[in-house]
Amino acid sequence: MGDQNSVDEYLSAPRSYMETLSMLPSLLRPAAAQADRIASLTAYFTIAALLVLTIVIGLLIYIVVRFRARPGDAEPEQFTGNKVVEGFMIGVPTLLVIVFMYLTLDTMADVLPPDSGTQPDVVITGHRYWWEASYPGTKAIVANEIHLPVGRRLLLHINAADVIHDWWVPALGAKMDAIPGRTNHLWVTITKPGVYEGACSEFCGAQHAWMRIKVVAQPEPEFRDWVARKAQVANPVLSASAQAGAAFFSRQPCGSCHRIRGTAATGAVGPDLTHFASRRTMLAGLMENNPDNLRQWLTDPQHVKPGALMPRFIYPKDSINVLVDYLSSLK
């Protein structure tokens, strides 16, 4: 239950304001080797930029104070240039450009070398408005809350099912567009276990704002357990009410968009629901995954997340209740 614990900790542990700050999804808090390289480059750049800005502002303040017009001023000396100054004006920026050119090319080659043609560890697909992750070599398919192992160099393949999306988890390094018709890749070597926030960063339509990512990074053995569990088919349904929900689910068109492995539902348009109840949030980070929110969503999806692809089915209340019981049992 390692994964559950770390997500639990993340969501419910009491913490001070400073601790909350430390969880901010920021490129300045790298948790991967690649993000680390980018963070140091960012630091060098910030220092250089602040230096330039300080020089400009300093000069400007001096000039403004020193050369402010005073009553009775005659026309000042009409000089029009100075070769030495102009030489510096070009020379210093050129030098800076050369330094940063080298650093850029070096970091680029390090952070994102070409895809070596090996099998990816994870295939990530952007959908309007949720993320799908599958783990090649296993049967595991999950949505939005994506687990990755710590301490191993991972190859991520990034695709899109409809429009362009963009995978971005600041603590893990570069973002990468998910473009329909193309497969992009990223390399990630996570160094610290934890839960990392991210979000779709290419405008993709009505609910671009609620296409958030949670990456749960955990030690290799925990991760293996997790994948093994996610690769299993859905739990057998126990309670009578959940069984009624299962029957309702298969009678209705739910299965033409959603997949529940081990049942007849094999749709690939919406998120895989095989282990739906083990997710802590629903609707790509919009709300906590609990029966009340689920009931609200199934009653009127377009009210909860307007523009999402889930249509409003006008079901009676008790049908929705058994459906909620069924989905909540899919641990």
Partner: peptide
């Protein structure tokens, strides 16, 4: 910072 590709990868969009 957008010409420096790795920083762009973090900050673009």
């Amino acid at each position: 910072s957008f010409a420096i590709v790795p920083i762009d990868w973090q900050l673009t969009d």
